[in-house]
Design a protein around this nucleic acid. Structure first.
Lengths: 77, 77
DNA sequence: AACAAATGTAAAGTATTTTTTACATCACTT
DNA sequence: AAGTGATGTAAAAAATACTTTACATTTGTT
């Protein structure tokens, strides 16, 4: 119900604004997703699929690990 | 119906056998997934979530981009 | 041969991600 | 003030990832 709190954090917005002048809609089009998807991910509502993560990182010109960070706290309890 | 052909390829099995002596079941336990999930991913049935991808790469001691490669052919048509 | 460990297949159910659609707000320009 | 572009919310439906359970195959060992 409450969703399962992904331990992934993304820095899409910061990088998008710092390194590109893409709007959310343009980024969405570039990566083949919808604007709504970008909004939800930027708002940390959920983590993207691996494929979408690759596309976003590639479009932003950064390695995946720069755009998405993983909090490696042990296995879920 | 036939699923949407993810453009992600993974090298989990090769790396798992080369760099570790983990079984599929052990890897599954390490990353908090089931054996069935590891089997399906190793068999390229589907790509893992970004979070699971991070965990697998971390457990295998390789960066994500070594374990998973993305074929960046243009947007789907 | 019998047993165990590792891998594989299958199918139904749950959870999560993505799309689609519609409408709201804010900043900027004419 | 009216219009446009960028961002936001919401909610239902579709697509994809993951779990659970049960059984099959292969390989190696006693």
């Amino acid at each position: 119900m409450g969703g399962k709190k992904t331990r992934i954090t993304n820095h899409i917005r910061r990088i998008r604004l710092a390194r590109t002048d893409l709007t959310q809609a343009e980024l969405a089009r570039c990566v083949g997703a919808t604007r709504q998807t970008i909004i939800s991910i930027e708002g940390q509502k959920y983590a993207p699929s691996l494929e979408l993560a690759f596309r976003i990182a590639h479009t932003l010109g950064e390695p995946i690990e720069e755009v998405f960070t993983f909090d490696p706290s042990g296995l879920e309890i």
